[in-house]
Structures are given as C-alpha cells and as structure tokens.
Nucleic acid binder design. Structure first.
Length: 825
RNA sequence: GCGGAUGUGGCGGAAUUGGCAGACGCACCAGACUUAGGAUCUGGCGCCGCGAGGUGUGGAGGUUCGAGUCCUCUCAUCCGCACCA
C-alpha cells in the first residue's frame, strides 16, 4: 500500500541508526586503500548557514561515494573555536567566551547532525579545548626550538580611543570597527613564525599539486612573490656607512640618478644629520610614521618625498647621486632602500618628473627613444644597454648577468633572490586564543615553557573591560609565575596565538584525536595523511592554505610525519547567492538551513544544493528549485514504494541476454546511468549532471513500469542501482526505500554498481545527415557501419536526394556513428 | 594598473575529444483526473514565421566540410593583488 514520504520520521530514524551502528567510525586498516575527505572546519558562530550546508554536502558525496567504492574513508568534523566573535559577544552579553563558544558548538552540532553527514563523530575536536591547544602550544615550542619563532618590534594597528591593538580585519577603511576612531600605527614587540625560510619550498612544491585549482596556485605564487635580482652597496659621501639596495634590474644601474630610503630606514637620521634639510626630513618621517598603512600605500596616493642633503656614490661609475626619502619605498621589502632609475621604472619616473630629477636612458628598445625628454613614461621593455660604459650593447637579459658578475668580482654586490612573503605575525593582544607558552624572567630573559608543563591553561572565568583589552593582563593567577630556569618570580606572556595557528595542523590531529602525549601518532598520521580531498571556500586560498602547507613541511622536517603537502586535491566551492548577492543579514536575503530542513528535509536541501550548480561555481538559491528537488524525491518515493513488495520476491539472474526491446532499452538506460554518474562524481565532481542523470533514469522507470510485459528483474536491477546512486546525495530516503525493498543491510555498505558493457551494446544508432554543415535528416543505421556504407545510406535517403538534386557534390565527410556531411553547391 | 574567472532560452544550468545547441530542473501554456487544486499525470515550450523555412551561445572578425568549444580583437560582470624596487 502506498505511504507518504514522511521525511521527518525517516531522517530521524536513519540518523539514529547510523549513530547506533557507528557505521562511519573508522580505524587504520592496512589492507584497504585509505581516503581522507575533509571539509574546512567551521567557526562555531552558533548557526549553520547555507555555505556550510553546501560545503558539507559536497564533502559527504565524496566521502560516501569513496566508501561505497571500497575505500577506508576518514571523514571527520571539528570546531575552529578560538577567535574574536566570542570576545565581542562576551563584552556585549557578559557571557564568558568559553561558555558562549561551547553552547554554540552544542547548537551547531545538533544542526549538523540533522544534515546526516557521514562523519566519524568519535574524532570531533575543538581547538579551544586544553587537550587540543596543549599541542598548538607544543607546535610553538618546536618552532621556537628550531629558531622559527622569534620576537621583534613591529608596527601594529592601534586604536587610540579603545586603547587596544586591532587585527587587520577590524580596521575598516582606516578606522576602528568599534568606535570609528582613526587607527594609527604603533611599534610593539610581536611574535613571528619564520615562514620566509620556507618561501622557496612553498613556491616550488606548488608543482607537486596538480589537484589544486590553478587560480589558487597563482594566488599563492603571487603572494610568495619571488623576484630574482641583486643586492649591492653604495658608499655615502662624507660618511662611513654604506647603503644596501636590492634591484631586479642591475642592467639599468648606469641609469641611476637618485636613490631613496624608506622613511623608517635607520640611516635616514645618519645621512641627514647636520644637513640644511635635516628639519624637513624629520618632519616628513614623523608624518609618515603616523599614517596608517592604508593612507600610505593605497594606489591613488601621490608619490612624495624630500631630499636628505646627502649623496651616495654609484659604485659602477663613481657618480654622486642625491639620497631622498619617499613614501613609496617600504622598509619591510628588500633592504628598505632602492636605486632609482626613472627612465626604466614608472614609479621612479613619476617621482623624478615631480621633483625635477634628471632622467637618463640606459636601455634602448627598438621603438623607444634615446633622449629622456621624449619619454612620456618609463620604458620597461626589452632592448640593449646604452650609456653604460663597457656594458653597452648587452641585451637586458645578458646585461643583468654581466653586471652581477662584475659586482661579484669587485665585491660590490651579489646576485640574490627576494620574496614578497613576510614572516607570519602570530601574536594577538587578545584573550580568546591559545596562550603563547613563554615566560619572561628578569634574570633569564625569554624562557619557553617546558613541554612537560603544557598546556598553559587559559583561565575561563574572566571579566571583560568595556575597552576590549585582553583580560589576561589583569588575571594575576595567570601571568604571575615562576621562572622554569632559575625559579625566580617571572611573568607569563599574555598574548595569545592567531587562530590560523590552530587550524594549521587540525587535519593531523584528526588522525589520532585522543592521543595525549603527542599532537598525533606517527602510525595514524602516516596512514591517513595527506588529505585526499579538501573542500572549502576560496577565501582561504592564501592564508590558511599557505600556513597549513608551512606547518606540514616543518613537521616533516622535524620527522613528525611523512607527508610534504597536506592536501592532495583541493576543491574551492562557490558562494551561495540569493538574488545575485551573497546571503547576509544586512541585505536581508538569508535563507536559514533550519527552516529548509524543517519544511522539506535534509535530503531535499542537499539534493537541491548539489543539483543547482557545479561545486566550484556560485549557486543561486531558488525556493522553487527546492520545491523541484522535493518533488523529485517524492516521485522516487512513490515509484519505489509502490513496487517494493513486488520486487522483493524477484532474484536477479546472472544473464540478461534474452530481453524484449523495452527491457533492453530500460537496461541500457540503467547501465548508461551507472556509467555517467560514476564518472561525473569521480572524475569531474559534476554532481549536478550526476543528479540529472539519476532523474532521467527515474523518468524512464516511470515509463517502463507501465509497459505491457514488465521484466521484473530488469526493473529491480534499475531500482537497486537508482537507490545506491541516490545514496551519496540523499542518504536518508535511499536507506528507507532500500529497506522497504526487502534489503537487510544499510545501502551505505553496498558496493557501488558497475556498469555492464554488454548492456551498452546497441545494434542501431541514429546518425545525422548534414548538407553543407546543416542538419537535414536523421537516420537509424547499424552500429559501426563503415564510412562507405554510411555514405551510401545517406546519399540514398530520399530527402537528401531531393535536397541535393541538381547540386554538385563537392565532398562528403563521414564520422562513423555520428554524422555524414555532404558538401554541395 | 596587473592577474584570474565568467558570459548559452523567461530562470538555474547541460553540451566531457571541434560533430544534432538548450540534457535535467524551475517557470509558463494546454489537456486529463477531481467537489476543489498551490497535489498528481500527459503533452508543449529559444527566437522570427500560419507554413516551408530562417535564425540563434555578450559583440566583431578568422581558421574549418563543420565552432558554444580553436585563434585575433573587443565589450560587460565578478573575484584576487595592488607603489614589492
């Protein structure tokens, strides 16, 4: 008897079943190929949004599909639980961040469970738990031991009104997010990780990642920003110091007409001392100091600078050139000083024209002028060196090498490489993060917390000042401690770590989440890592993915794991849009996953979101599209439920060779669908077309069930295949119908079907006949007809005869099993 | 400015190797069932045209027997980076 598709009861039932049977729990199994499927873990904001649903639905298709194909699949989930929103909530609602966070986790875990994702919940972790951050701190200590964690002064964003440091994300158009005051820069002691030591490897090893989107690799390459050039020193007139510059254009060194120091450069005060310009220089430096990064480096800011009164000596030709300071030279790239070649660098050109500094052409391109007065802009193209003494007539490329060689021989400078990548500033003057395991002792200086004393526990019962300043500065029981070396009174570091540190190794932790003495066990991590498929938003293309790669390489180097790269394949999913815009509270276009699941069920939500667009592309939310997905599941329900009892009795034969025409058609469709769905999931990640193929199969079954001689074996085979293939997308309904068809085991543990090549053999096929490239007729022909036969058949077709009558046939192109094109005029 | 992506019916999208453009779904139209339909089923559905037919993948050229797909130029939208010497 027909029953109603009661998704609420069904979804609850099967979620309970999976949990009780613990069917997604995995352990290492050397006898089976492993597959590690991972979605970027969420920040526990308290509510699941559609972006999450999309992310996890995609991951679940991959995980379930791989499991059904015989892989031992690790598919874990956890919480990126430290971070700013918890502190803001604490200030606003007077709830301690720990409590706010854990209740959010409870809430989101419940929501996640209603989606029915195949997670091994036994491995759940939270980065804010002492069991986890103990090892985040351990990571810090290891980096410190290997001289990859260090402290130095750095300029940070400072809100003078709130009296606190701000993260870059909290600075909105140069102002404080909270109070709107103008943010300025302040020099503070900060902790850094020396990721720059890994710059070359992070760049080179992108080659090891063919499974990453080019877009992401290009972004990382640009971010690392390797540039090859040379570094050399210039003497200063009447001064013992030398100025070192980096350039990528040593071939233009004879065109240097001035040089520039960054305003923060330590030699600025030295070279300008006692000069008439000293006062002006100091004023300029001061002005630059107070400008935010934004005001200083935005592209529309005009170049400006002042002459220091000092001169440097070009070591190549002995010329004395003026030393300037200017806003467009940055202290933290290269050496903080440049040689300026206005003829061949656009920035220098603009600056020189503004301040009437001479311009000298030293590269002559085919079209470019020799006379500097004729330059409308800098010439950065190819050419040969001119006005360059013995180097004249060298090409740009050869000239670079020749000049570097000369500099090396004469101890002027040397060839070198510079990276744009900066060291990673990891300290945050905030409360809700992993405390940096460092102690300051008046006698012993900076002392790392001994490993055996980890974790440095973050006190949870704290009070927040309305200013937003970290409460750790006021918790005496936290910061007052003894020096581990001398035993004397000492003070703990009250800064905590950037949350990106926590997320740089969580995928390793998932391999052995209960381990207590090490962050992970070697056997487990080497069995599971690297992650085979990582899925998340493209917004993490640079930071998270770069940091995770850095950590993996470091852990590899200290012999903690085998992998050199954490993520073999990366899928960057598109955003979920509504009315063409990203869903957001301020736009009021948010669709709540909870509402959708309540109204239509998780299976419908998942199916729609996977069907509406391929995963990498943005997805336009459509309430009517959801209805469509829901209707489709209802159609499957009615179809299978009606015939469930009937097909229970049927056993599938080995041999399907004696079939009538309709049965053969049906079976062809079943196996063509198996082939297509398998390929679409496995090779292309095109879930939308996989689902459309399943819909076509369903449509065909609805036709076949009403034919006169229904072959129940063929019918049953199709239904079975349909349910198994539906499972990765909409697992609850698949389980329920599978059971109603009399199967005892979960559909999840079925083997993915293999298509039968016999079923795909056709004896007739439709080909197209074109006349001069336009389709004029379709003809059924025996499959694999030869070119000769096809030519014959096409030309004998009455309609084609008629249309070519009186025309001259120039040429006939035959593509077997596809088409015949008769070129006639 | 540099780098990347995208552009196909009323809408989301399909066309995987240069070979039937518009699969599948939504919306819409007509019909069936029905007390009723915002349920279900059947059929139709790019545009122009009564029709034969013509035409059509942002635009303009090109290569080819044949182009959504390849090449050149161009426009639009989105994303990333943005004085990196």
């Amino acid at each position: 008897m027909n029953s109603k598709y009661d998704f609420q009861a069904i979804e609850k039932k099967w979620q309970k079943y999976w949990e009780e049977q613990n069917i997604f729990h995995v352990t290492e199994d050397p006898n089976r190929p492993k597959y590690y499927a991972l979605e970027m873990f969420p920040y526990p904001s308290g509510n699941l949004h559609m972006g999450h649903v999309r992310n996890y639905a995609i991951g679940d298709v991959v995980a379930r599909f791989k499991a059904m194909n015989g892989f031992n699949v690790l598919h874990p989930m956890g919480w990126d639980a430290f971070g700013l929103p918890a502190e803001n909530a604490a200030i606003k609602n007077a709830i301690p961040p720990a409590r706010w966070t854990s209740s959010n986790i409870v809430n989101m875990r419940e929501q996640l469970k209603t989606l029915g994702i195949s997670y091994d919940w036994d491995r759940e972790l939270s980065t804010a738990s002492p069991e986890y951050y103990k090892f985040t701190q351990w990571m810090f200590l290891k980096l410190y031991q290997h001289n990859l964690a260090y402290k130095k002064k750095a300029a940070v964003n400072w809100c003078p009104s709130c009296q606190t440091v701000l993260a870059n994300e909290q600075v909105v158009e140069g102002s404080c997010e909270r109070c709107d005051a103008a943010v300025d820069k302040k020099q503070l002691e900060q902790w850094f990780f020396k990721i720059t030591d890994y710059a070359q490897r992070l760049l080179d090893d992108l080659e090891m990642l063919p499974g990453w989107p080019d877009k992401v690799k290009i972004m990382q390459r640009n971010w690392i920003g390797r540039s090859q050039g040379c570094q050399f020193s210039m003497d200063i007139e009447g001064c013992d110091e030398k100025i070192t510059v980096f350039t990528t254009r040593p071939d233009t060194v004879f065109g240097v007409t001035y040089m520039v120091l960054a305003p923060e450069h330590p030699l600025v005060s030295v070279v300008s001392a006692g000069k008439p310009q000293e006062q002006q220089v100091q004023e300029f430096v001061k002005r630059m100091q107070y400008l935010s990064d934004m005001a200083r480096t935005a592209s529309d800011v005009e170049k400006e600078g002042v002459f220091t009164g000092a001169y440097a000596i070009n070591p190549m030709n002995g010329e004395h050139i003026p030393i300037w300071i200017a806003n467009y030279v940055l202290m933290d790239y290269g050496t903080g000083a440049i040689m300026a070649v206005p003829a061949h660098d656009q920035r220098d050109f603009e600056f020189a024209r503004k301040y009437d500094i001479p311009v000298r052409v030293v590269i002559k391109g085919e079209e470019s002028p020799l006379n500097a007065d004729e330059l409308a802009e800098a010439y950065a193209g190819d050419g040969v060196m001119v006005n360059s003494g013995t180097f004249d007539n060298y090409s740009v490329e050869d000239g670079k090498n020749a000049v570097i060689e000369y500099m090396q021989e004469n101890n002027i400078g040397f060839g070198t490489v510079n990276f744009r990548l900066r060291d990673w500033l990891i300290s945050r003057q905030r409360y809700w993060g992993a405390p940096i395991p460092i102690i300051y002792c008046d006698k012993c200086g900076i002392v790392p917390v001994p490993e055996s004393d980890l974790p440095v526990i973050l006190p949870e019962d704290v009070e927040f000042k309305p200013s937003g300043e970290s409460p750790l500065n006021y918790v005496e029981s936290f910061y007052k401690t003894d020096c581990p070396v001398c035993g004397g009174a000492a003070k703990r570091e009250t800064d905590t770590m950037d949350t990106f540190v926590c997320s740089s190794w969580y995928f390793d932790r998932f391999c052995s989440p209960q381990e207590t003495s090490l962050p992970f066990t070697r056997g487990a991590v080497d069995y599971w890592m690297p992650v085979d498929q990582y899925i998340g938003g493209v917004e993490h293309a640079i930071l998270h993915l770069m940091y995770a790669r850095f950590f993996t390489k470091f852990l590899h180097d200290i012999n903690m794991l085998e992998a050199q790269e954490p993520f073999t394949n990366l899928l960057t999913q598109g955003m979920v849009l509504k009315d063409g815009a990203k869903m957001s509270k301020s736009k009021g276009n948010v669709v709540s996953p909870e509402d959708i699941i309540r109204t239509y069920g998780a299976d419908t939500a998942r199916l729609f979101i996977l069907f509406a667009s391929p995963p990498e592309r943005d997805l336009e939310w459509s309430d009517q599209g959801v209805e469509g997905a829901y209707r489709f599941l209802n159609r499957i329900w009615r179809l299978v439920d009606e015939y469930a009892d009937l097909i229970q009795e049927v056993s599938l034969p080995e041999d399907f060779s004696q079939l009538d025409e309709n049965a053969r058609k049906m079976r062809f469709k079943t196996h063509a669908t198996i082939k297509k769905v398998s390929e679409d999931i496995n090779a292309r990640f095109n879930f939308n077309t996989a689902i459309s193929a399943i819909m076509e199969l369903t449509n065909m079954l609805n036709w076949y069930k009403d034919v006169e001689e229904l072959d129940l074996a063929v019918f049953k085979e199709a239904i079975n295949s349909l349910l198994i293939m539906l499972n990765p997308f909409s697992p609850h309904i698949a389980e329920e119908l599978w059971q109603r068809c009399g199967n005892e085991n979960s559909v999840q543990i079925q083997n993915w079907p293999k298509y039968d090549p016999q079923a795909l053999i056709q004896d007739e096929i439709e080909i197209v006949v074109q006349i001069s490239g336009k389709v004029k007729e379709r003809i059924m022909v025996p499959v694999d007809s030869t070119e000769e036969e096809l030519r014959e058949i096409a030309q004998n077709n009455s309609r084609i005869k008629e249309l070519t009558n009186g025309k001259k046939i120039v040429k006939i192109i035959v593509v077997p099993n596809k088409l015949v094109n008769i070129v006639a005029n």
